[in-house]
Amino acid sequence: MFIKNGWYVAAWGNEIGRELTQRWIAGDPLVLYRTEAGKVVALEDRCPHRRASLAKGRLVGDTVQCGYHGITFDCLGSCVHIPGQEKIPGSMAARAYPVLEKWQWVWVWMGDPDAADESLLPDFHYNDAPGWVATGGCIPVKANYQLLTDNLLDLTHETYVHGKTIGNSAIVETPISYRVEGNEVHVERIIRNAPPPPLFQQVRNFEGNIDRWQIIRFQMPAHISIDARGLPAGTNDIERGMRWFSINSITPVNERSSLYYWTITRCFSLEDESLTKVVSDQIYKTFMEDVEVLEAQQALIETDQRRKAEVSIRADSGSVSARRIVQRLVEKDASTTSERMIPEVAQ
């Protein structure tokens, strides 16, 4: 259930330097590093000789030397040296993956390199846009990545899971609307004249009720941005209100685990470092509440021998739509791969 022809976050930009770093994405191992010129390289982390981990080798200039037998590969994955052997077999090559570095993150295209398309990156420019300040991190989660996208596309759970930070009863009492546009899902909930949740009150000190917006955008394979706004009820007073984006990119490690890359980027009180810390600490606490729920959910799914079909409700409309998009694109990728594997018949 992994889309291959899509961009996944492999790391924060500041995580990758002049050392070999292993990442698993959608069941495949990668080794990442920066060249001496600063460009990020991503190769398959299996030496084609005996499948040793290249990440356990060493950098020699801009090449990777396998730590097992010393076979060396350049940035394109081409073998440039075999100790004690002049002739290099054509098949002695490590797969190289297309890489982009944008919006503080390193992105890797896991599918057909000829299909890599920068326009398919999610629009996460608020991560480093002028007039905005971002804080974030990466959380390992022992759960399938689609459980995380479900969680972010249906924020009803905030009422019950996050009552001490971003949730209150007004959320569950307000229905959502949703629409599907191509490979995107848009979910919207507008809450009128309701008490602010605890974290909103803490960061903006509202004097009364607020109007609240949750505008969610899903982009494949597993990228979700949430435009979250709170304004004094019945006004458009952004000066006394708040707006931030919760930007989330879920990278599947394998079927049972994920890396959850996240930021909160806001457009108010930009110079207030103490506020940035409050937001970061409280949102991290909020996400760890999700992790507790999702990891328990994963365990129960894996041990459910009955395999009964889940029963969906209205609030699942966005997450069900996203799963259908993923299913369709997974099948498309599989079909394309199968077509490439079918040998041509000589005429």
Rank of each mutant, 00 (worst) to 15 (best):
N254L: 00
S249V: 15
N205E: 14
F200M: 15
E239K: 15
P252Q: 05
P232G: 07
A233V: 12
L231K: 11
H186R: 12
H186P: 01
R229F: 04
P232I: 08
G234D: 09
D211R: 01
K164W: 00
N205Q: 14
H223E: 06
S169G: 03
G230T: 09
W244E: 12
N168F: 03
V253Q: 09
I190S: 05
I226G: 00
E188I: 01
I171V: 14
G182K: 02
V180M: 02
H186Q: 08
G167Q: 06
Q214D: 11
E239F: 07
R204T: 05
V172L: 09
I171P: 03
I191F: 02
V203C: 00
D237M: 07
G241L: 11
E255F: 09
R243W: 11
N183D: 15
E255N: 14
V185K: 03
S246D: 10
E239R: 14
I171Q: 05
N193G: 01
Q214M: 11
W213F: 08
E173L: 08
A228V: 14
N236I: 01
N193L: 05
W213K: 10
G234K: 06
M220C: 09
T251Q: 02
I247A: 13
E207T: 14
I190N: 11
P195H: 07
Y178I: 01
R256M: 11
A222D: 06
W213E: 04
R256A: 14
S249L: 04
I166E: 07
A222G: 14
I224M: 07
I210W: 03
P195R: 10
P198G: 10
I250V: 15
P198D: 08
E173K: 14
Y178Q: 06
